[in-house]
Computed example of a mutant assay.
Amino acid sequence: MSPTTRLRGFGERLAGPGQPVYVVGEIGINHNGDLGNAFALIDAAADAGCDAVKFQKRTPEICTPRDQWHIERDTPWGRMTYIDYRHRVEFDEDAYRAIDAHCAERGIAWFASPWDTEALAFLEKFDLPAHKVASACLTDDELLRSLRATGRTVVLSTGMSTPKQIRHAVEVLGSDSILLCHATSTYPAKAEELNLRVINTLREEYPNVPIGYSGHETGLQTTLAAVALGAAFVERHITLDRAMWGSDQAASVEPGGLARLVRDIRTIETALGDGVKRVYDSELAPMKKLRRFRGQVPAAV
């Protein structure tokens, strides 16, 4: 198998073996329906060196169970029904046009997770590098077939899913243009439930598919461990402040942490090298000074 069979296109970038880790700042709905927050999060991701930011797009009447529509809840905008809240945190086309322009200005890509086929049709109005399947949507065959029909790269998160469900989703999507992400769908996820070695399991099960990691834990160490295990794609939720209102904020990374994460990912991928053992020129002086050859002639460098 040629390594090129596992490369996936994200606009002008490739993800997969031999390529830099594709790093995504997952904004999701952490913008709380505020375009200023979205711009600030895009800026934080661009400043940190992320390759892309990602949003979530839903059609509230489709994605919200009917029996929850009229349940009232307290929000930063007052007490409102759940269906009204779901509309409150969705951006319309004008807002996404502004997001598209701001990302272009900052030199960072964006894409989103459509949660239904209407949301996918909305996103197809834009020239996006990829689409993402949220773990919750992995069993939605209609959505998966529609995503496959776009011809774009599809990132498939595998949280809350069995191996059988994952295999079925891969069959529906086809393996030629997908990237699989190991994930644990708890917010925040416990370290003992991250099970990062599943990255290796997925790589063995799907040798022609790049494998990534979508993390919902607190802290950065375990995401860096995923990179060391060979994750070709990394996604973390990002926030301006973990104390902000919203269900995903506590499991998100603030701007300073995001900058450290990207910096350390780049250091790790450089340090991993190519796996070919060699003697470096920088080792020649220490070798001459420290090694006793005992009649053994040093091999040519």
Rank of each mutant, 00 (worst) to 15 (best):
G246E: 05
L240C: 10
L179D: 00
S175F: 06
L224V: 04
I178T: 02
E235D: 12
Q249G: 09
D241Q: 12
H237T: 06
A228G: 06
L194K: 02
R197Y: 15
S252E: 05
M244H: 12
S157I: 04
Y187R: 07
A225W: 04
L194D: 01
A226I: 06
W245K: 14
H182A: 11
T158H: 00
G215E: 04
G246Q: 12
P207M: 10
T222I: 11
S214V: 00
S247E: 09
K164W: 12
V234T: 07
F233H: 03
T201H: 09
A226Q: 03
Y206N: 08
K190S: 12
M244V: 08
E235Q: 11
S161M: 11
L220Y: 04
V154Q: 02
A189P: 00
H168E: 13
T186G: 11
Q249L: 10
E205Q: 13
L240K: 06
T184Q: 06
T158W: 01
I178F: 02
P188K: 05
V170Y: 01
A231C: 03
S175C: 10
T184F: 14
P210G: 09
E192P: 05
I238V: 11
L229N: 07
V170W: 01
R167L: 10
E204S: 10
V227F: 01
A232V: 04
L224S: 06
S214F: 03
T184R: 14
A243N: 15
E204C: 11
K190W: 15
T222D: 14
A191N: 09
T158C: 07
Q221I: 13
A189H: 05
T184K: 15
K164S: 11
Q165V: 14
Q165W: 15
A169D: 00
K190P: 04
V198L: 12
Q249T: 07
L173Y: 02
A191V: 12
E193M: 13
S252N: 04
G246M: 08
A231L: 13
G215T: 04
R242G: 06
G174H: 03
I199P: 01
S161C: 08
I166M: 09
I178S: 01
R197P: 04
L156P: 00
H237A: 05
V227I: 09
D248E: 10
A243V: 13
H216W: 01
I238W: 04
V234K: 03
M244W: 15
